[in-house]
Design a protein around this nucleic acid. Structure first.
Length: 156
DNA sequence: GCCAACGTTGGC
DNA sequence: GCCAACGTTGGC
């Protein structure tokens, strides 16, 4: 069982949107970055735990927890010209883009804002807190996971 | 809305 | 295969 962090813009698809889905589950489509693609295709497994991160919003930070319920499979939106994520070079016979299914677990009792994550030396190795990082999916170590849960219950 | 940082593309 | 130009991400 592994831990991950996945970014999403709440204005597009936030934690409340995931919680509102049928069975509180949705597919994580639209990722068009090879590093993130590789993680979904090759590494993410049912049972893996996910921090849900809100980006590009008023208070960027970790807002909840989800669980991977289906490992990597082809992202069909790549083949749909009407999709925002259409990729004309993607071939259904040889899929280029993949997605996973995630299920809502819970909201955190408070949002843990990015500056607080950055200020914690125990999290200094997370790509999330490093300048210029744009990875939308990243691995989280067990130590980092536990540290963030500790921060949830002990503000400041 | 600005813009720095980064990934991708394409000319050569 | 280099690298400049371009588009995107995402904090601020």
């Amino acid at each position: 069982m592994a831990y991950w962090l996945m970014k999403s813009e709440p204005g597009v698809f936030g934690i409340d949107d995931l919680a509102a889905q049928p069975d509180q589950t949705d597919h994580w489509d639209g990722v068009r970055n090879y590093q993130a693609r590789n993680m979904m295709r090759d590494e993410m497994q049912p049972g893996d735990q996910v921090f849900f991160y809100h980006s590009n919003c008023k208070v960027p930070g970790i807002v909840g927890i989800a669980e991977v319920v289906r490992g990597g499979y082809p992202d069909h939106t790549a083949y749909e010209p009407e999709s925002d994520h259409y990729d004309p070079k993607s071939d259904p016979e040889n899929p280029r883009w993949f997605m996973v299914d995630v299920k809502f677990r819970r909201r955190l009792t408070r949002t843990i804002p990015l500056p607080e994550l950055k200020a914690n030396p125990a999290l200094a190795d997370m790509p999330l807190v490093r300048k210029g990082n744009r990875l939308s999916i990243m691995p989280v170590t067990e130590a980092q996971w536990n540290e963030i849960l500790r921060m949830e219950s002990q503000p400041g």
